[in-house]
């Protein structure tokens, strides 16, 4: 793994209209920085794959630009050494072995055939390398797609839904691999339709819905405040105490009998309960708050 700084990826006012006037991406702009893992998030069909394919010169933008290191992909002097991409798990000839697939791509990229064995080892497929791809599971295909992306030891990785089909162990492995890649200075752009899958992996997020940017920034900037969950037998007395604290405070009963409080920290809720003499049976913060925000941001209104 190289320690060189990866390229910056820039999407500027990108628009893609497919035939029959289907607008897949609309005036989309965002920047992906080296040294960080950027999650490219949105529901299925929101335009993530189209955007990535524009970045990689496979789809021609209708308007705007998608640039790697300031250039369109097809103008890069050494595309495979600059960007490694894993787009989907289906682009393999079923009769070929994994090793031979990699050797085909290595040759086209001007790389020695020995790289095939090196990347097979990097993704843990050494033992299956000589098996024909018709026998490969979805998870193995995902690993092979990643191995293909790694062939040129690129400064940037662009991965489309790489966690699909991976078992929990595989996802954990992918997470630590991508983190290490970014820590070494690489640029990592990884798409997903589920934030929860990526929450522990990404530094930055770019969220799109229906082809348009919803939010871009650091993962922590997504969080709009803590969500506190509590249970109390003195609920009737406690809630007015909490709501009195400010106009931004909300409390909702949930079907499981707990109360969800927004606008106050857990410490503040605990203090108010204590000083009000209310008994608490549970006081915790919501762990999937980000997922909730993500769902709110990308909720379809169609």
């Amino acid at each position: 793994m190289t320690a060189t700084t990866g390229p910056t990826i820039e999407v500027a006012s990108l628009t893609k209209v497919f035939r029959r006037s289907v607008t897949a991406v609309k005036d989309l702009s965002f920047t992906v920085s080296p040294g960080r893992v950027t999650g490219f998030l949105g529901p299925n069909g929101s335009g993530k794959t189209t955007t990535l394919r524009c970045l990689l010169g496979l789809v021609r933008p209708t308007d705007g630009q998608a640039l790697v290191d300031g250039r369109p992909y097809r103008d890069l002097p050494n595309p495979t050494g600059m960007v490694g991409a894993a787009l989907e798990a289906s682009g393999f000839h079923p009769g070929r072995t994994a090793r031979n697939h990699l050797r085909v791509v290595a040759a086209a990229a001007g790389l020695p055939a020995s790289r095939a064995d090196e990347v097979l080892e990097a993704v843990g497929l050494t033992d299956a390398g000589r098996r024909r791809l018709v026998e490969y599971s979805l998870g193995m295909r995902q690993r092979l797609a990643l191995a293909t992306a790694l062939l040129g030891d690129p400064g940037a990785l662009i991965l489309d839904e790489p966690a699909n089909g991976l078992d929990p162990e595989g996802i954990a492995w992918l997470r630590s691999y991508l983190r290490a890649r970014a820590a070494a200075g690489g640029t990592v752009l990884v798409s997903s339709h589920a934030l929860s899958e990526m929450q522990q992996t990404v530094d930055d997020v770019v969220i799109i819905n229906k082809g348009e940017l919803v939010q871009a920034g650091t993962l922590s900037s997504l969080s709009t405040g803590e969500r506190v969950v509590l249970r109390s037998p003195d609920e009737a007395r406690l809630l007015p105490l909490l709501l009195r604290e400010g106009s931004g405070v909300e409390a909702d009963s949930r079907p499981d009998g707990s109360i969800l409080v927004t606008g106050l920290s857990a410490a503040e809720v605990g203090h108010l309960a204590f000083s009000g003499g209310c008994e608490l049976h549970e006081l915790s913060t919501e762990s999937d708050a980000l997922e909730r925000i993500f769902l709110d941001l990308t909720r379809g209104d169609a």
Binding site: L76, P77, N78, R96, R103, V104, V105, A107, A109
Partner: peptide, 21 residues
Amino acid sequence: MSAPARDLVASEWRKVATTRI
């Protein structure tokens, strides 16, 4: 741009040699 023509032909040959058709 990218790899020399010789490498591209080599890649095409591997595609052929690694399937049966």
